[in-house]
């Protein structure tokens, strides 16, 4: 029997299918305006891609901010529990997860069974999230996908001191005006995210191995900044963006 996890985030909707402890596949689409529709679209899209019949699907677990909008799911579970389950599924040794998504960031401590023992989330602020990076990419006129590689070429990372996305954007604009190099500004932005997320993560007693999940994990610059501040190696989930959906599918299978 196939189980499905659906993760409706603020920016993207993800779905993953699991059968017999194996990941069959996953899919990501933009959430858009209607979370319910996005849930249905990503679910149907995934089934189509994997050529799975609707009748072959067993339990469905929904997660993410739109978890309660997915009315065809059997259960709604928070993304905290799902990210822990997803990370545990990928690597049972993992004891900590740092997830940076579109509009939130969270740190999760896991027990050996993959259950959450403690967690911390960002407060009502977009700084230190994917949205923050999007705003900065726009200000710098750089494709967000290029951020990671570009930051590695920095020779003198800029200092971004503001904790607020809007004010940090002003800081970036004034750095551009002063002629600072893009690579250095981007490295500064990553360091600022790293500092903010690690300050939050330090509320918990995080133990290695640490896995990073969420779409922002694809950005090598942020990963390096986190390692730097955390003082621990950070492994990136091979399925970073769909880790929550994988965890949901795993929980749907009773894992």
């Amino acid at each position: 029997m196939v189980t499905i996890g659906i993760d409706i985030g603020s920016i993207s909707a993800k779905a993953a299918a699991i059968a017999k402890d194996k990941l069959l596949g996953s899919k990501v689409i933009l959430t858009g305006y209607n979370a319910r529709q996005a849930g249905m679209a990503v679910f149907e899209g995934l089934l189509k891609e994997l050529a799975i019949d609707r009748d072959a699907v067993g339990r469905i677990v929904a997660t993410g901010y739109g978890r309660n909008s997915v009315d065809f799911a059997d259960q709604a579970v928070t993304e905290i529990t799902c990210h822990a389950a997803g990370a545990h599924f990928q690597d049972p040794e993992v004891r900590a997860v740092i997830d940076i998504g579109g509009q939130d960031s969270k740190a999760i401590a896991l027990g050996p069974n993959g259950r959450v023992t403690d967690f911390a989330m960002n407060d009502k602020c977009a700084a230190g999230t994917g949205r923050f990076l999007e705003v900065m990419a726009r200000a710098l006129e750089v494709d967000l996908d290029a951020f990671g590689e570009m930051s590695l070429q920095a020779d003198e990372p800029a200092k971004i001191s503001s904790l607020c996305t809007v004010f940090a954007e002003s800081e970036v604009i004034s750095l551009i005006a002063k002629g600072a190099r893009r690579t250095n500004i981007i490295a500064g932005i990553h360091a600022s995210i790293g500092a903010r997320v690690v300050a939050m993560a330090n509320r918990l007693k995080l133990q290695a191995p640490v896995m990073m999940t969420g779409g922002v994990a694809h950005n090598i610059g942020v990963v390096k900044a986190l390692e730097d501040k955390l003082g621990l190696p950070v492994q990136v989930s091979a399925h970073a963006q769909v880790n929550g959906a994988i965890g949901a599918a795993r929980l749907a299978a009773g894992g």
Partner: peptide, 8 residues
Amino acid sequence: RIDAFMEV
């Protein structure tokens, strides 16, 4: 947060 705490 409340849902996640209750899950814990």
